[in-house]
Amino acid sequence: MEGQQKFRHIYIEKRVMDHPRTREILAHFPESRVILIDHYKAVFNRRGQSAALQHQSQNLILAAAKDTNVYPGAPVCQDFGNAHFYYTSCTMNCLYDCEYCYLKGMYPSGNLVIFVELEKIFAEVEALLSQFPVYLCISYDTDLLAMEDIAHYCTAWSEFAAQHENLTIEIRTKCGRTDLWDHLPRCERVIFAYTISPEPVILAYEHGTAKLDNRLEAAAEGIAHGFPVRLCFDPMIYVPGWEEIYHDMLVQTVKIVPLSRVRDFSVGSFRISESYLKNLRRQEPDSAVVQYPFTLDRGYYHYSQSLTERMERTLVEELGRMVPEAAVFRWEEPNE
């Protein structure tokens, strides 16, 4: 299991030290040293942390749910046409270590937090569901599927979604496991969304994640097991020779994944808020993908308009040729 060699230290908020989920998670890490804390922020929000170093020796923090855990979806994120788009962070940070990840710009720490009081988060979602249908992304600030053995949150959320007809959930992942499909409950409103990147980008920048073939095989296996699967060619990352690299990626995708059975696709190039990029550049001073000279536009950094258009259009057109009937969602800047 991917996380087993991690977590030399597990910090636990005293108020959840007797929580059943705390005990379940601890059982996976008998060798970890436990340190009791009053509040997760005492560790997570320390000044001057190096997320890059912490990712090399990541620790786990188990905490109670916050007062508010469900938020409106961010403008830079794809809402797939859903009117009531929300996201939740039942876990903060990721087992993986992608250089360009906005989490390094958003969070002060590279350590991983699991909020064990999932039931409180469910209650918040139910309060929204009493007003309107909700499209909820639960794996933005983390990779829940990669952590399924540790926390079983994909299972818990799938069971919850099955009980609520007006809830649709997206679980975003770069995980390449195929064995989980035998155990996960299936619900047509729980979408497994694979981030698909070219192999050279994965090798250079997406440290610890599954290789392209493994992700594609996992997606194909999910489809074969009857799970709704989305493929996200998002974020597209500029590298010299990107046309050929992304073409090869699509060729490989077609070989492994039955594209006609993919629920939908999303395409988008890299974009990030101004404040996040500033922090991210501090954390990753030697990363080419992060130090790229992006264009600043209304509070967001992205590739230039012309490069963005070329990259995304090229991919959309090639995808359209492969799957003419595909539903392809391209991120568009929100109107002011």
């Binding site: 340190i35 804390i37 320390r46």
Partner: peptide
Amino acid sequence: VNKLTDLDSGATYYPDLLVRLNLPEAE
């Protein structure tokens, strides 16, 4: 040391323990 507490103020501090050597830990 993995956790420090100031007895007078009650404040707690947590150094990052990134050097891997076989030393026992304590607060």
